[in-house]
């Protein structure tokens, strides 16, 4: 396991798909490093044999009845899309020529 003292902000920002300005990178470098340092507290906890908790009151196999119900029209579903054409969202080309 790696033991990070500082965060590679550029690497993590790319994972999060967020463009940062030069100033933001500089500011976050210090701040996120401090926060990680603060998280170090967790390493001292004895969690041997403890089950991880994802939810307070987990519910499993929650099924809906298999029946149709009213949904959005294409127009409603696309009402907030930034670019659309013929009931579809327009996006930049993703296949290389």
């Amino acid at each position: 396991m790696k033991e990070p003292q500082t965060m590679d902000v550029e690497y993590a920002a790319n994972l999060a798909r967020i463009d940062l300005t030069v100033e933001e990178k500089k500011k976050f470098n210090g701040q996120l490093g401090d926060i990680l340092q603060y998280f170090e507290k967790l390493k001292a906890v004895d969690v041997e044999g403890v089950e991880p908790m994802a939810h307070a009151f987990p519910r499993h196999n929650v099924w809906d009845e298999d029946e149709s119900r009213a949904g959005f029209s294409a127009e409603e579903a696309l009402s907030n899309a930034p670019a659309k054409r013929k009931d579809q969202v327009v996006v930049p080309k993703v296949i290389e020529e």
Partner: peptide, 21 residues
């Protein structure tokens, strides 16, 4: 990346980056 860089404020960026990490 650019839409999120322009659209999110500082704290949201900090937390999304921290969470992804």
């Amino acid at each position: 990346s650019k839409s999120r860089g322009e659209g999110f404020g500082e704290e949201v960026k900090r937390r999304c980056i921290l969470g992804a990490y």
